[in-house]
Simulated assay, not measured.
Amino acid sequence: MRIGIVCPYSWDVPGGVQFHIRDLAGYLIGLGHEVSVLAPADDETPLPPYVVSAGRAVPVPYNGSVARLNFGFLSAARVRRWLHDGRFDVIHIHEPASPSLGLLSCWAARGPIVATFHTSNPRSRAMIAAYPILQPALEKISARIAVSEYARRTLVEHLGGDAVVIPNGVDVDFFARAEPRPEWSTPPDGAADGGTIGFMGRIDESRKGLQVLIKALPQIIEARPGTRLLVAGRGDAQEALEPLPEHLRDRVEFLGMVSDEDKARLLRSVDLYVAPNLGGESFGIILVEAMSAGAPVLASDLDAFAQVLGQGAAGELFPVGDSEALAAAAIRILGDASRRADLRARAAAHVRRFDWSVVAADILGVYETVASGTAAVSPDDRLRRARGFRL
């Protein structure tokens, strides 16, 4: 099958949607399918052979974060050329409701179109206001996928229609096989009064909740003096440490951006992974990665996180934004080796439903359904003649 995938966000800035698309494309190529990904990218960005650049992206505030998107006349022309050259059996557009390549592709294409909705934002006035503009494009979609029940709910409430829920995928064995790094692991002589906590995310993006974890750290260290925190992600480390008493700041180590291999090794090394996010999450891929690596998980009780963790069966939850509850739960888990072992065992069984062998099979089933008996994807010349393809 010839498959075209549209990535809305800049390929050179790491993010959950980009990782999802990258891993899906790689898995499909491994199965023998021909895959091309259209994505924004800076000119100097090295790209895999299956990625086609749609040009440089610009930062746009979106869903409580800053997304790097690509939109405009030049981008529209590149979309049409990619569609013309690709002769795809199906195209898979991610985030078609955002002002991005996804929306341009909906406007420009005709034929079998699958769309995945990642965003969970139940009070989006902008999405409601934009519905009259989005409706003609969204009506061309043959099948809709939502990565979680909460992303599906956002779609239903704001744009109408419905979607099948297929979660984000993870290469479970990749994380399970990773080797811990000794410098990131708790030494045997420190296990009795400490432990290593892990956090991954953009340091200066408040919704990722690092400030909640930093606020909880003095209480955790008071109860378990050997505790330390490893933080992976981009952002201003000094600013993140300001709320922490100066004598405790050496308990936090900032690793910066890490490779996929080091991400897996970090998650294999820690005694507890904490996800203190405050909102705006539709899934929680890092929770799946942590469970795959065998890290006990403690997460804020966002609806999406609770769903990923089986409502607390595969990881523990604490009230969103409550640093005292976070500290109490972390102290209890770090001090109870049997509880950590139980969480690992539960997570190992639970996480298999998110492996690419399951997720990609479900997505391929959607592709085959919409492509069966229909013409291949092509540029929609009718739209171009009728509207002059104005943006």
Score class of each variant (00 low, 15 high):
Val165Thr: 14
Pro136Ile: 15
Val258Arg: 02
Cys7Pro: 12
Ser120His: 11
Gln311Phe: 10
Ser259Thr: 14
Gly235Met: 00
Met1Trp: 02
Ala129Phe: 10
Gln311Leu: 10
Gly64Lys: 02
Met200Phe: 08
Val52Asn: 00
His247Arg: 13
Phe354Asn: 01
Gly198Tyr: 08
Gln18Asn: 06
Gly190Glu: 15
Ser206Ala: 15
Arg382Phe: 13
Leu83Ser: 02
Asp380Glu: 00
Arg110Lys: 13
His84Phe: 14
Ser105Ile: 09
Gly280Ala: 04
Arg78Cys: 08
Ala327Trp: 00
Phe71Lys: 10
Arg68Ala: 05
Val288Trp: 01
Val156Asp: 06
Arg81Ser: 14
Gly388His: 07
Ala57Trp: 10
Ile203Asp: 01
Thr196Asn: 00
Ala143Gly: 07
Gly55Val: 13
Phe175Glu: 03
Asp189Trp: 11
Val37Cys: 05
Gly209Leu: 04
Arg56Ile: 11
Ile197Pro: 03
Val288Asp: 04
Gly373Pro: 00
Ala341Asn: 11
Val288Phe: 02
Pro14Tyr: 14
Ser259Cys: 03
Leu83Met: 09
Val51Pro: 06
Ile113Gln: 06
Gly102Asn: 06
Glu95Trp: 01
Ala304Leu: 13
Ile113Thr: 09
Arg78Ala: 06
Ala115Asp: 01
Pro136Thr: 04
Glu368Asp: 10
Arg153Asn: 12
Thr154Ser: 10
Val165His: 02
Pro96Asp: 11
Asn121Asp: 15
Val351His: 00
Gly4Asn: 06
Glu95Ser: 13
Thr116Gly: 03
Leu255Phe: 03
Ala306Asn: 02
Gly279Phe: 08
Leu334Ala: 07
Arg234Asn: 13
Val252Arg: 05
Ala163Ser: 11
Ile203Phe: 06
Gly284Arg: 01
Phe19Ala: 15
His350Met: 10
Ser185Thr: 15
Val58Gly: 02
Leu104Met: 06
Asp173Thr: 15
Asp171Cys: 10
Val170Thr: 11
Pro319Asn: 07
Ala76Ile: 08
Gly64Asn: 08
Val165Lys: 04
Phe305Gln: 11
Trp107Gly: 07
Gly16Met: 01
Pro225Val: 05
Phe174Gln: 03
Ala361Cys: 07
Leu343Gln: 14
